[in-house]
Design a binder for these strands. Structure first.
Length: 887
RNA sequence: GCGAGCAUAGCUCAGCGGUAGAGCACUACCUUCACACGGUAGGGGUCACAGGUUCAAAUCCUGUUGCUCGCACCA
């Protein structure tokens, strides 16, 4: 007998009949959710001195649609948070709701069948019934019910009402999936606190001279009728056509331009061509006259023109695209804005100096055909006129081309001149990239997306939106004696006044009665881009200027989890904000989750109709199984949705539960772990525990899960558990048998405890349930127990892993022999002739008793064969006893 | 056009210098007293292709192809 190590106390076995036969997920999940909530298991302790681990949780957009992608990424974050909690950190893990912004407005419009109409009077106590809860959107459309127009205030009230309901659904799902969020830290991006922080941010940027407002060409969505930012654009391939249109040259001659936007002909302000293009060089400096409208425009040269494209000469309009804006600025061209905010062509006066037409009457009559039409309708109409007048030189040449859309919009964005607020970012791209590089990106290559995006940023951040349900831009403008708005002298609120709504609050030094009056003021009606608020999530959580001490403790946060399609928005803006406000990075790590793809590897999206809702899988496989699927995915890697993996997760949870019951049913006297096989097993487990901890520290929990699972099955349930049954079965009486049993039982318990804790971040329900059967004396909740580490094995004699390897190999070869011989595993072997090299035999012998008992082998005759490799056993002869009698 | 990622068993994926791995699926056998939501075994891959480095390459380098994605261009 080897020297004894640490002595373990006597344990009573748990009566298995007092434990459930099978793990009933719905029951266990409900019970534990209630228990964790009552006990405050996941509470953040603000005044605690332990090191903090702060999570910058993504506030989900509360648009009412839940899909598996949500579960996937949020579970991955939860796994990290749970690990850190078990490492003894004071985990700050809040949940916010991103409930303002366009998605919400759109949903509210549909849900109640309402629109916001600025001129409507407020109706006290208006509480409309939700229409969509009784019918589908299709039915609603078919019935053509009249839509109600609500005042801004009534509209916002209904937004609050619906988001509140949606938040409840989300909260239920988050609780079900077992997110270890501290629900006392719940917030919404529209609540007073968030509005205050967002407005503080605005004031701070204003103080730092990083803001400006300007009336200038900006990206405009004509459906939502609001300005949008560069980051919110996306390319879509749509059909279009080149139209060859003939222009006259003043003083004689013609040339033909090619355009995909003939409807902008009236907005033409110039003609440009490449300076070295022989075909048109002579035209530069002359003037052209547009067909149909007869407007005189300058012809100038520009290196930006590609002679290969179209006809090599083109018209500059206000505004067809970003390059037009550049030419307009450089050449100081006039502004002929013909597209209105609603995306329709607005009236134009061809007698005015702005539209100097050679023939105002003809121009007006031509324009009459398109005025009031949408861009698409106008295009069709103008092509017909051009054709009729012979100005269209060739039939339109159809092409597929990429056009910029607002990501949530249905029509291409236009560039309109409007007054907007901007944050200066283009002048500090390099610095932003540098700050981004100080953050650890997981996976690392995602940093290049951030860098790539930032390098290509060309427009400052437009933060004003002409919408309703959002955080107000906290400014007023004075009105001069004539009632004109003095934009250059915005009135700012004081910090103490925040949050303010300039539409109902009054600036200092003014009375409400002066609103809209000459010499008085008006409130800014625009709201912030939602990213302006959500780029402050770390500051929302840390309470920034509201509570500087708390801010110091929590900021920068430890980890920002998010998906990759919002690197250019959420990650980018958050990094920029932290830099602008405090010259800091917002977090030390950013973890990018992949997407959930449908089984055909297409991205799941509502429009494709391939979205899988989570609840059916939670019900079918249990939360832990769904978490297992999430936990297996590596960061940044897209994962095909696969219920098969959840099935495996459930199998793991069941196995853990059953193995746990088996182990805890064993009772044993006080004693030490002395048996070589037990010590060998623990030596292997110790290494596994260290590997798993390391993987977690490296932000690779998927690897920890994979390795732990593999080890659990192969080394614990399939082998070790079977190998020690001989020592744990039945009543033992002799001192040596009792000691051998105690050794096994204490090792089993040590092993089980480690496995439960290793799996706890992934399978919080199953592990907590099993833990409650036998380990509550260590820690009431497993989620406050220490994550397994080498110290768990202090005092346990170091074992020889080779003994375990040899035992496993021998066990396997005997099983194999029985299977090949088609005899029952339970059939005894009277005598076996086994071949192995001497080193292997030497490793095997200390475990011989256990292997022989487990495999029911009574005698082994060894043949030494040095030609065999390590742990290679061969069964030379085998002599079976009688089949065991079935009872 | 620029940049990034991926390519390994029928499927989902791990491995990332030292004899090809897991689970699922498939086949055979076993109701062995924790577990049939079990168990024991088995078949199955020239690691996309072509070069190179190395004693040794799925793994490192170069190129090619294919599939994704990001950015730019988009008259």
């Amino acid at each position: 007998m080897s020297k004894s190590g640490k002595s373990f106390k006597k344990v009573e076995g748990v009566d298995p009949s007092s434990l459930p036969k099978n793990l009933e997920f719905p029951k266990v999940e409900a019970e534990l959710q209630a228990r964790w909530s009552t006990e405050g298991t996941y509470r953040f302790h603000e005044n605690d001195t332990r090191p903090v681990f702060a999570v910058d949780t993504p506030p989900p957009t509360v648009s009412g649609s839940l899909h598996v992608g949500h579960i996937f990424s949020y579970t991955q974050t939860d796994i990290l948070a749970r690990f850190q909690r078990m490492k003894g950190k004071n985990v700050f893990y809040p949940m916010g709701w991103d409930d303002n912004g366009l998605p919400t407005e759109r949903r509210v419009q549909n849900f109640f069948h309402i629109r916001c109409e600025a001129n409507q009077p407020y109706e006290q106590g208006l509480d409309l019934p939700p229409i969509l809860s009784t019918m589908t959107e299709k039915e609603l459309e078919a019935k053509k019910l009249p839509q109600r127009n609500l005042s801004r205030k009534n509209f916002i009230e209904h937004c609050h009402k619906l988001t509140h309901e949606d938040e409840k659904l989300f909260k239920k799902l988050w609780s079900h999936i077992g997110l270890s969020v501290d629900w006392s830290l719940e917030y919404a991006t529209i609540d007073d606190h968030s509005r205050k922080i967002a407005q503080l941010s605005f004031l701070d940027l204003h103080r730092k001279n990083e803001l400006y407002q300007v009336e200038a060409p900006t990206l405009w969505d004509t459906d939502f009728q609001t300005a949008v930012a560069q980051a919110e654009l996306e390319d879509r391939e749509i059909p279009g056509a080149f139209h060859d249109i003939e222009f006259e040259v003043e003083g004689g001659g013609t040339f033909t331009i090619a355009t995909t936007r003939p409807e902008l002909l009236a907005a033409c302000v110039g003609i440009t061509t490449h300076p070295s293009d022989e075909r048109y060089r002579s035209l530069i400096g002359k003037f052209a006259v547009s067909p149909l409208f007869g407007v005189r425009v300058p012809i100038f040269g520009s290196e930006l023109v590609n002679p290969e494209k179209g006809t090599g000469i083109l018209m500059v309009c206000t505004f067809g695209d970003q390059t037009d804006v550049q030419w307009w600025r450089e050449q100081k061209l006039p502004l002929r804005q013909i597209i209105g905010r609603d995306g329709r062509l607005q009236p134009v006066n061809f007698s005015s100096p702005l539209f100097p037409s050679r023939n105002p009457e003809e121009a007006s009559s031509n324009y009459q055909v398109i005025v009031g039409k949408t861009v698409k309708q106008a295009q069709k109409a103008i092509v017909e006129i051009l054709q009729a007048k012979g100005a269209l030189k060739n039939p339109p040449k159809p092409i597929q081309h990429a056009v910029k859309f607002y990501e949530k919009g249905d029509r291409p964005v236009e560039i309109l001149t409007t007054r907007q607020w901007f944050v200066k970012l283009v002048d500090k791209k390099e610095k932003i990239i540098e700050y981004g590089s100080k953050i650890q990106w997981h996976p690392e290559f995602m940093y290049s997306r951030f860098k790539n995006w930032t390098e290509n940023l060309s427009i400052d951040w437009c933060i004003s939106r002409q919408r309703f349900f959002g955080v107000s831009i906290p400014v007023w403008y004075p009105l001069d004696a004539k009632g004109a708005i003095e934009y250059s002298r915005p009135l700012m609120p004081s910090q103490a006044q925040l949050p303010v709504d300039p539409m109902s609050d009054v600036p200092e030094g003014y009375q409400e009665s002066q609103r809209g009056k000459p010499g008085g003021f008006i409130g800014e009606s625009d709201v912030f881009d939602t990213w302006f608020t959500s780029s402050l999530t770390p500051q929302l959580g840390s309470h920034w200027e509201v509570n500087p001490e708390r801010h110091r403790k929590l900021f920068p946060m430890d980890v920002r989890p998010q998906s990759h399609e919002i690197i250019r928005t959420w990650a980018f803006y958050t990094i920029a904000k932290a830099m602008l406000h405090e010259e800091k990075i917002p977090w030390k790590h950013i973890v990018i989750s992949g997407w959930v793809l449908d089984p055909d590897r297409k991205k799941m999206s509502k429009s494709k109709g391939n979205v899988v809702t989570p609840s059916q899988f939670l019900d079918e496989f249990g939360a832990d199984a769904v978490r297992y699927w999430s936990g297996l995915a590596r960061y940044g890697v897209d994962t095909a949705f696969d219920p098969g993996i959840m099935k495996i997760g459930r199998r793991l949870a069941m196995k853990l539960f059953n193995a746990g019951k088996f182990v805890l049913a064993q009772g044993a006297i006080e004693g030490a772990i002395t048996e070589p096989l037990d010590l060998a097993f623990l030596a292997k487990l110790k290494k596994q525990v260290e590997d798993a901890g390391r993987a977690f520290e490296n932000f690779e929990p998927a690897q920890a899960l994979m390795e732990t699972e593999k080890f659990f099955w192969s080394h614990f349930t399939d082998s070790y558990l079977e190998l020690v049954k001989g020592r744990t079965w039945g009543e033992k009486t002799s001192a040596s048998d009792l000691a051998a049993k105690a050794s096994a039982v204490h090792a089993l318990r040590l092993g089980l405890s480690a496995f439960l804790r290793l799996f706890a971040p992934f399978l919080p329900y199953t592990t907590e349930e099993v833990w409650s059967y036998g380990f509550t004396a260590v820690s009431k909740s497993i989620h406050h127990a220490t994550f397994p580490h080498a110290g768990d094995f202090d005092g346990v004699t170091a074992g020889d892993p080779a003994i375990f390897d040899a035992a496993m190999a021998a066990q396997s070869v005997i099983n194999q022999q029985k299977t090949v011989s088609k005899v029952s595993i339970a059939r005894p072997v009277v005598k076996a002739g086994m071949r192995a090299n001497s080193k292997t035999i030497e490793s095997f012998l200390p475990a011989a008793r256990d292997v022989m008992a487990a495999s029911k082998v009574e005698q082994i005759d060894w043949i030494k064969d040095e030609a065999l490799s390590a742990n290679e056993f061969r069964v030379e002869t085998i002599e079976y006893g009688p089949e065991p009698v079935k009872t």
